[in-house]
Design a protein around this nucleic acid. Structure first.
Length: 152
DNA sequence: GCCAACGTTGGC
DNA sequence: GCCAACGTTGGC
């Protein structure tokens, strides 16, 4: 089982939204690195941190599990959809998504500012300047360390 | 295949 | 709202 971190803007879709709907397709990702991870590496049962970006206190807000491994993101096929991509062909899909399931919301956000101060996390793309990857792997060591920062 | 222009991300 | 960093696009 692998660990991940996935970013979302809470104004668009936040942890409270996931808690309400329980399971949600993580669609609209239009970045090849993130696509490759969803398509090739994420497996059902993997765990992921839910990260709030572009908001007042960016940081990790909870945990979800991967409910379904990578499958084609058909929002790319719909000309009416926000994430429409005319270059994605249903016979050869360019974009993929996974389904995520709500597991837990932390009592307190673990702010990015705090994560940045931890030498244990210095290798995470998340804390590196200018990194915009919206999905990234988390090592078991990093996962355990971050879990130790929560108040459960 | 280079690279300038452009668009997007996302912290601040 | 600003802007640095980065990915993508497209002309050549």
């Amino acid at each position: 089982m692998a660990y991940w971190l996935m970013k979302s803007e809470p104004d668009v879709f936040g942890i409270d939204d996931l808690k309400r709907v329980k399971v949600e397709p993580w669609d609209g990702v239009r970045n090849y690195q993130a696509r490759n991870m969803m398509r090739d590496e994420m497996k059902k049962g993997d765990q992921a941190f839910f990260y709030h970006s572009n908001c007042e206190v960016p940081g990790i807000v909870g945990i979800m599990t991967i409910a379904r491994a990578g499958y084609p993101d058909d929002t790319a096929f719909d000309p009416e959809a926000k994430y429409y991509d005319p270059k994605s062909d249903p016979d050869n899909p360019r974009w993929y998504r996974v389904d995520v399931r709500f597991k837990r919301k932390f009592r307190k956000v673990i702010p990015l500012s705090e994560l940045k101060t931890c030498p244990e996390l210095a290798d995470m793309p998340l804390v590196r300047k200018g990194n915009r990857l919206s999905i990234m792997p988390v090592t078991p060591e990093q996962w355990q360390f971050i879990m130790g920062l929560t108040d459960k």
